[in-house]
Amino acid sequence: MTRSLYADLAGSGEIIEVLSDEAFLGNLLRVEKALAQGAVAQETVESYVLNVEDLSRRAAAGGNPVIPLVADLKAINPEGIHPGATSQDIIDSAIMMCLRDVTGEIIGKLEGLAQDLAELTSTHKETPIMGRTLGQIATATTFGAITGGWLVAVLNAKQKLENLEFPVSYGGASGNMAAVYPHGWEIQSQLAQKLYLKDPGWVWHSDRTPITDIAAALATASGVVRKIAGDVVFYSQTEVGELREKSPGGSSAMPHKANPAAAIACDGYARRAPGLLATLFDALDCRLQRGVGSWHAEWVTARELAAVTHAAVSRASTSINGIIVNVEVMASRTSGEAGHAVEIAERALQIFEREK
């Protein structure tokens, strides 16, 4: 399954290159190259031409794409290929490379969103607006206090992503490095260095928490921006009219409309994250030394979760960037003092400066 062009361009096109089947299968080849022993084996991997469709079709017979890949490489030259490894080592490491690369992209998007939110918070820390709780008018606050809350949540989500580790996998057939004893830990360390992955110092074949740690951080980022998008949609309603996106969407049937299209798209992408996360948590049921179906379910699901998170964050950033604030309408609905709202906005800005 090559990634959907529409879905990826709606986020931004660069993730096609890091989450596609071409990228995933290409990473399998990169892992094999890093493992290859000797000049002949290196030349074999370098000369191999990856055919994504052919390899994908042949993968069905053995349940994973590494089996036909290794067969192709060994047909060229059987020496020094796939030493001491099993399919899971190659696939897990390749997934980690995909997730590492897209997480860096998401962090960059969150940084831009945080900067825009900080500017909104600074500009509107004293702008009065009615607070709403449980769908009803509550007490007065400031728009800067509201955006400050969004800002801190974005910073927290970004920090969770920045703290992630992407471990290499190298355990062999039963996850005990038996085929390369006593050199397994050394090989794992070298492999991690070559692939720019973390050396975990252990074998995680049947412990899938490295996957769920990443998945939880991705889903958190999706949820954080979905909350912002939902608020923007409310404030942009005709009857409310307190916000308007810089480039609102139109309607094919109603030319008078100015839809908060970017916020709506963000909501649509982020809405898929909880289900994908649930699938990955279900895959923690990895039986014995290799999961039966649970492991296989991770390959597309983890990449899809990363894709929808990237798209959601990208659309949230587009929604907030240059958003128009109708301060007169906001003020017209308020009465009374906003209390500590200005202080709350200032505290959010202090947290932003500290995190920069």
Rank of each mutant, 00 (worst) to 15 (best):
A179S: 12
K158C: 02
L151Q: 11
L164E: 04
G148L: 01
A145M: 13
A145H: 09
S169I: 04
G149L: 12
G172W: 05
E165W: 03
L151Y: 06
T147H: 11
K158I: 02
V152K: 12
T141D: 00
N156L: 07
L151H: 14
G171T: 06
E165A: 05
V154D: 00
G144K: 11
K160A: 14
A178T: 15
G172H: 15
G149M: 08
A178C: 12
L151G: 11
L151I: 09
N163H: 08
A179G: 10
V154R: 05
N176Q: 13
L164M: 04
V168E: 04
L161D: 03
K158F: 01
V154E: 00
L155M: 07
T142A: 02
A179Q: 10
A178F: 13
Y170V: 05
Y170D: 02
V154M: 01
L151S: 13
V154G: 01
G171K: 07
W150K: 03
A153G: 01
V152M: 11
V168T: 02
G172I: 09
G144W: 14
S169E: 08
L164P: 02
P167Q: 04
L164S: 02
L155K: 12
G149Y: 10
N176C: 04
G175S: 13
L164T: 00
K160H: 06
Q159N: 08
P167T: 04
A153V: 00
G144M: 07
M177G: 11
N176R: 09
L164A: 01
A157W: 10
A179Y: 03
A178V: 11
S174W: 01
V154T: 00
G175N: 11
A178N: 14
A145Q: 01
A157R: 09
N156K: 10
L155D: 07
G144P: 15
